[in-house]
Design a protein around this nucleic acid. Structure first.
Length: 257
DNA sequence: ATGGCCTTTATCAAAGGA
């Protein structure tokens, strides 16, 4: 079972790239963030023609998440219970017997902003929800754009980023606490190339210079970590014309189907 | 050096992203 995540930074702009990527990589489930589409404008027909079903929850201009899958998802959840949040950042369903939770964590803007406080509050609510979900689902995947680089090796220039949003200690601590609930960072279950990142700024030729951050993650419960066989970042999409600033991340499980 | 680039929108300037 192949499960992937990709912040596409507007599905309207990136639809042809997503369809190409599905055809080449054949994931069972692809989780999208920053679709920036209201549900009535979602390209369900084009995605169906490519052999994928859609579950989406979107809003105009900002945010928006979706699940594209070969098989139908069940028991859909589209918000963190108990968190009053109009922003569309969460979507979850069960595929086969795996509970998949797609998230788009708030960016935070800067550590002295209200958006940063919202980010920390959002992460605390996510933590509480994941604790409940892990109690109910031994086979659980949490993936998406976390907007957090967990460790120094996930940042091209840790000294430059020290204390900055995406790498500040409170954010990294929130990430660590989520792992502490009983999740593993699937990317780090395997040997990986040094300086592996998932996001590069559009400016300053950041991709060409590999000045990036690893902020998109696929976390797996301990039961799934035992059958996880690979996790890769697909940098090829970042070289396309009009790329998303994020690359897809894909993980594979040795499952029965 | 506080910019740079990309996307969206009640557009031709500003906000948000990361």
């Amino acid at each position: 079972m192949k499960i992937a995540t990709w912040n596409v930074n507007s599905l309207k702009v990136r639809l042809s790239q997503v369809l190409d990527w599905l055809a080449v990589n054949q994931p069972d489930v692809l989780c999208l963030q920053e679709t920036k589409l209201q549900d009535e404008n979602f390209p369900i027909a084009e995605i169906a023609a490519a052999g994928y079903q859609t579950i989406c929850t979107g809003q105009r201009t900002y945010n928006g998440v979706a699940l594209l899958s070969k098989q139908a998802g069940a028991e859909i959840v589209a918000a963190i219970p108990g968190l009053d949040d109009p922003q569309k950042r969460v979507l979850s369903a069960i595929y086969d017997d795996v509970r998949i939770i797609c998230i788009y964590v708030p960016n935070g803007q800067s550590v002295d902003s209200e958006k940063y406080q919202y980010k920390l509050k959002w992460l605390a609510a996510l933590n509480g929800w994941l604790r409940d979900m892990l109690n109910k689902h031994r086979k659980l995947v949490v993936l998406g754009d976390f907007n957090i680089a967990p460790e120094e090796r996930d940042v091209h220039d840790p000294a430059l980023w020290e204390g900055q949003v995406l790498f500040s200690l409170p954010e990294r601590e929130a990430f660590r606490e989520i792992l502490g609930l009983g999740l593993r960072d699937s990317f780090r279950l395997f040997d990986q190339p040094e300086k592996s990142y998932t996001w590069w700024d559009y400016r300053m030729m950041a991709f060409r210079r590999n000045r990036g951050l690893r902020i998109d993650h696929i976390l797996v419960s301990h039961e799934l970590a035992k059958i996880c066989t690979a996790c890769i970042i697909d940098k090829a999409t970042r070289k396309l014309e009009r790329p998303s600033d994020h690359a897809p991340v894909m993980m594979e499980l040795r499952t029965g189907c």
